[in-house]
Design a protein around this nucleic acid. Structure first.
Lengths: 153, 153
DNA sequence: ATGAGTGCAAAGGCTTTGCATTAGG
DNA sequence: CCTAATGCAAAGCCTTTGCACTCAT
């Protein structure tokens, strides 16, 4: 495995990639969209719309919804569905690192975590064929652990 | 592994268990609640509220929401979060068979499926310790495959 | 100049709640 | 009997949409 890129080079790649994917989708990489991508790059967990509005006061709520939808369509961000009523967003996993989620069933908090590579590989092997048997074409898998976070134990 | 129980004995166990869990929670096993459990026992996928109202016309919408919440609290049913805006419910997996979900990213459909026992075991082994490292207490894991169903391929 | 993007406000749609009535134990 | 459960309707809340204005190309 190559060493992790530095923060600055990763940020450069990130915005360059985001811009490119939006262009391919006929969309512009505007100031607001860049701000959203930059924000998602700073967090270690998927963020809710409310968090976005708090962390980046000044963004219009409707623009946040619309831009996250555009970014999702372009494959830059990914919609995360947890246990509560709030939709969360994170950077697409091919822009970060493939990971999974710890979901607190008490407070709804979501944190990222990574599993051992060999288990990840086992799952990758097992799932594609499993899906095909039923006429289902697998795009990706979603593995979450549901339990209680440190604050709610 | 013991042979699967017959449908009738399983139904008996199911309702007896449901009743018992509700009692433990200070709740009654009413006609409507029994109807919900019976309905969930007939499906091979988690059902939305809309499906419940269609399949069991006559149940009041608010009662369905309230009773599913009560049944969830008592550990009889389980809330399933997929990719769309609809909440789905299924029987708790200790009343059925541990399984996973195929989620169609196009139409939102959810189907049940089962993975190989050895992989299931690998995951069970890997997850509990992985969670503890971060102060997270794992209750259960959630593994879904997201892709396109036969109708949407 | 010209269409995409933005912000504000209003509308939508799933879900929850209030309250009077009914039924379970 | 007496409390919990039910049904209907209204309210809540996250999310989406309409529309006029602004900005980038």
């Amino acid at each position: 495995m190559p060493p992790a890129p530095s923060a600055s080079s990763r940020a450069h790649d990130l915005h360059a990639t985001a811009s490119q994917r939006l262009r391919s989708d006929g969309q512009r990489y505007t100031t607001n969209r860049r701000a959203l991508v930059a924000l998602l790059d700073t967090t270690d967990h998927p963020v809710t719309i409310a968090e976005v509005l708090t962390l980046r006061a000044g963004l219009a709520q409707s623009s946040v919804y619309r831009n996250l939808a555009v970014l999702e369509q372009a494959g830059v961000v990914h919609r995360v569905v947890a246990n509560d009523e709030f939709t969360r967003f994170e950077l697409a996993q091919d822009l970060t690192e493939h990971h999974h989620h710890l979901i607190c069933s008490a407070c709804g908090a979501v944190a990222d975590f990574i599993i051992e590579p060999h288990l990840e590989a086992s799952m990758a092997d097992a799932f594609a064929p499993g899906g095909e048997q039923t006429g289902f074409l697998t795009e990706h898998h979603r593995l979450d652990l549901v339990g209680h976070c440190a604050d709610c134990r």
